[in-house]
Amino acid sequence: MSADSDAFLAMLAAERGAAANTIAAYRRDLAGAAEFVGDLASAGRDELAALAGHWSELAPATVARKVSALRQFYGFLIDEGRIADDPSDALPRPATRRPLPKLLSHEDIARLFDRAALEAEGGEIRAVRQLALLEMLYGSGLRATELVALPLAALPRDAPFVTIRGKGGQERVVPISTRAKAALNRWAELRPSGSRYVFPASGRSSAGHLSRVRLYQLLKGLAGRAGIDPARISPHVLRHAFATHLLEGGADLRILQALLGHADIATTQIYTHVDAARLVELVNSRHPLAARGLARGGTSV
């Protein structure tokens, strides 16, 4: 790695609060490009344009990530006065389309909660924990990592919110519903001591927290028992359901951005596409002319 690359990565960490995984990904992308074109700071447009062929077998999303890393790197060099001309406009422009998230209906959510509540009625510790986890995932839209690593100190006794430290170390305040608060209080009565986390790990590592892998397993098991295909369920899918259903209920996109902890509103805007997709599905399935058109061999509205 060159001194310029090291300085750029140091800036990402110090000024933008980039996470370690993000820094590592940028480092790999810059190093891979440098192996092909040589010194990035002195590379011209022709060398950067040739990367299109070098990356031809990669997925468009992967190419887009690499291009983003290089564009930011050259922007840094411009800002630092290291180069006078930005050659990054010669980089390939892959046509990427952000995939729509998997969707859960309100009925799917109701089945999950009905099953989780039924299992928690007996007071068994794992079932009570399961219900609290589900309430926080769907009720507050937390990421899996944020939930399993949630420290006790982040939960105020009386205030109806929790302070989350998300990607890049950025903090945000997320409301806790009355239902979720009740589930957490019930879990607090049974929760093993000895850990600073809300959801401690079990077994010998009880001082640590529940793992993301275990959280995935718990949700998929619950889905199966609720009669839902486990492949459709994950912590991220529940986060998407939280966002989609809030938007359907009239939530403002900027408020949704703050609740989800998105740095860029463009990331949140995918939910407007989800909402539009639901509207199209609704028209095609429920409009009076839809059934009539299909019956005559036509297409849906």
Rank of each mutant, 00 (worst) to 15 (best):
residue 1 M to A: 13
residue 2 S to D: 13
residue 2 S to V: 04
residue 8 F to M: 09
residue 9 L to Q: 08
residue 11 M to V: 10
residue 11 M to P: 01
residue 12 L to H: 08
residue 12 L to G: 08
residue 13 A to W: 03
residue 15 E to K: 14
residue 16 R to F: 05
residue 16 R to K: 15
residue 17 G to C: 12
residue 19 A to G: 15
residue 21 N to R: 12
residue 22 T to Q: 11
residue 28 R to M: 06
residue 31 A to H: 06
residue 31 A to D: 15
residue 32 G to M: 03
residue 41 A to I: 14
residue 44 G to Q: 11
residue 49 A to K: 02
residue 51 L to M: 12
residue 58 L to T: 07
residue 61 A to H: 14
residue 63 V to R: 13
residue 65 R to F: 11
residue 66 K to A: 14
residue 67 V to I: 12
residue 67 V to Y: 00
residue 67 V to K: 09
residue 67 V to R: 11
residue 78 I to L: 15
residue 80 E to F: 09
residue 80 E to Y: 10
residue 82 R to F: 04
residue 82 R to L: 12
residue 83 I to T: 12
residue 86 D to C: 11
residue 86 D to T: 11
residue 88 S to C: 10
residue 89 D to C: 02
residue 90 A to N: 05
residue 92 P to N: 02
residue 93 R to I: 02
residue 93 R to W: 02
residue 101 P to R: 08
residue 102 K to S: 04
residue 102 K to I: 01
residue 110 A to Y: 00
residue 111 R to I: 01
residue 113 F to R: 01
residue 115 R to I: 00
residue 118 L to K: 01
residue 119 E to N: 02
residue 125 I to A: 15
residue 128 V to E: 07
residue 128 V to G: 07
residue 132 A to H: 09
residue 133 L to R: 05
residue 136 M to A: 11
residue 136 M to S: 09
residue 137 L to R: 05
residue 137 L to K: 05
residue 138 Y to G: 02
residue 139 G to I: 05
residue 142 L to P: 01
residue 147 L to T: 06
residue 147 L to H: 04
residue 148 V to K: 07
residue 149 A to H: 05
residue 149 A to K: 10
residue 155 L to G: 03
residue 157 R to D: 10
residue 158 D to W: 06
residue 158 D to E: 13
residue 158 D to F: 09
residue 159 A to E: 14
residue 159 A to Q: 12
residue 163 T to A: 08
residue 170 Q to F: 07
residue 171 E to T: 13
residue 173 V to M: 04
residue 176 I to W: 06
residue 180 A to F: 10
residue 183 A to N: 10
residue 185 N to I: 13
residue 187 W to E: 07
residue 191 R to D: 08
residue 191 R to T: 12
residue 200 P to M: 14
residue 203 G to Y: 12
residue 204 R to V: 14
residue 207 A to C: 05
residue 211 S to H: 10
residue 211 S to P: 05
residue 216 Y to G: 10
residue 217 Q to L: 14
residue 217 Q to V: 11
residue 220 K to T: 12
residue 227 G to F: 06
residue 232 R to T: 06
residue 238 L to M: 11
residue 243 A to T: 00
residue 245 H to F: 07
residue 253 L to T: 00
residue 254 R to W: 07
residue 255 I to Y: 01
residue 255 I to H: 02
residue 255 I to R: 00
residue 257 Q to L: 03
residue 258 A to G: 05
residue 259 L to R: 05
residue 260 L to F: 04
residue 266 A to N: 12
residue 270 I to P: 03
residue 273 H to C: 03
residue 273 H to K: 13
residue 275 D to T: 02
residue 288 P to S: 06
residue 291 A to D: 04
residue 293 G to I: 09
residue 294 L to S: 08
residue 295 A to Q: 11
residue 299 T to Y: 07
